[in-house]
């Protein structure tokens, strides 16, 4: 079942001589529960693509559908609620709020919704993330791996349709990287979570169900484990 659909997506920076086509007419689709790696050289447009999919940036042209909804048809407020409930974003540098504890950071999307966090769910996630002991610590008191785990917790706490991770292990050592990847696989397996992950690391990408390769803003390869689809994406 198709969860995400991207059609002729473009993001252009600058004008005239200074024009840079960060994402250049990308089209593909992702079925529910798939774990996708987006790889490519620096400046290939991976992060920009991810930010467009998460609706944290506006495309120059093109469309994105999530669960049948045209994402950029929403106004600012609707987009915010969409991100809060349907998307989980994870950044390379964690981007946790420095004034909130690990636990508060994890439940933040629910607090934004004006709801009370589900305690059982919180305990389950803290357990899974191995953050129980550090739940009341501020980000500055956590290690890099712990901060990234808290960021993952924040991304999956609302059980969003899709998790978008921008180089989630880019700032971590190999041990922590392996642990984070295991977490992703676990959530993908146990929670049937759809995950799109940008990475430089081909060995990490190999652990995903599908690998999309970007070059100069265009998809040059799109391979699903067990079946090669070639450039241009698996659906369009």
């Amino acid at each position: 079942m198709e969860l995400l659909k991207v059609e002729a997506l473009c993001k252009v920076y600058g004008k005239g001589e200074n024009e840079v086509r960060a994402v250049d007419g990308v089209s593909f689709s992702v079925p529910k529960g798939q774990m996708v790696a987006i790889i490519g050289a620096s400046g290939s447009g991976k992060s920009t693509l991810l930010h467009l999919l998460g609706a944290v940036d506006q495309p120059t042209s093109g469309k994105v559908w999530l669960d049948g909804q045209d994402v950029f048809q929403h106004n600012k407020k609707e987009l915010a609620i969409f991100r809060r409930r349907q998307v989980g974003l994870i950044y390379q540098f964690y981007n946790l709020n420095p004034v909130l504890t690990a636990e508060e950071n994890i439940v933040l999307p629910v607090l934004m919704d004006g709801r009370k966090p589900d305690k059982a769910q919180l305990e389950k996630i803290l357990d899974m993330l191995e953050l129980k002991e550090r739940r009341n610590h501020l980000p500055s008191q956590l290690s890099g791996g712990q901060q990234q785990r808290a960021a993952i917790g924040r991304a999956i706490f609302t059980a969003p349709q899709i998790v978008l991770a921008d180089e989630p292990t880019g700032n971590l050592d190999s041990k922590n990287s392996a642990e984070i990847m295991e977490l992703f696989r676990q959530t993908n397996r146990e929670l049937k979570q759809t995950i799109l992950m940008v990475t430089h690391d081909e060995s990490l990408a190999e652990q995903c169900d599908r690998i999309i390769v970007l070059h100069d803003g265009k998809i040059i390869s799109d391979e699903t484990k067990g079946a090669s689809k070639g450039a241009g994406g698996n659906a369009l």
Partner: peptide
Amino acid sequence: ERHYGVLQSIGATPKQ
């Protein structure tokens, strides 16, 4: 400003 950007990216509305 970066914190506010992150908050928006995880779902805070402009009003919030």
